[in-house]
Amino acid sequence: MLTSAHVSENYFLESRHMLLEIAAHFDRYEAAVAREAGGMTNGRAAARPGEDGRMARLREALAILAAPRPEGERTVALLELFAQD
């Protein structure tokens, strides 16, 4: 079994990479929304009350990941979240 230090060391860059991909996904989505709306506001799309449900689900997932001490495993929580769709 790995130590906590090894877990952090071994998987940090991979997780960094995946988070950047998610960040790019959100940026890509907002850029597309702005194009469809015909303009940008300060380089960003305006607030979207009717956001695509899948994007909203991803935001919920990120909130689960950001919680310091979830009750159960994060993977289980996310799988259950995505199973609601």
Partner: peptide, 17 residues
């Protein structure tokens, strides 16, 4: 790069921007 630099998708995002 697979992990530590830019990804193909992010590169295309920048080309589009």
């Amino acid at each position: 790069y697979p992990i530590t630099k830019c990804s193909p998708k992010r590169a295309v995002d920048m080309l589009e921007k």
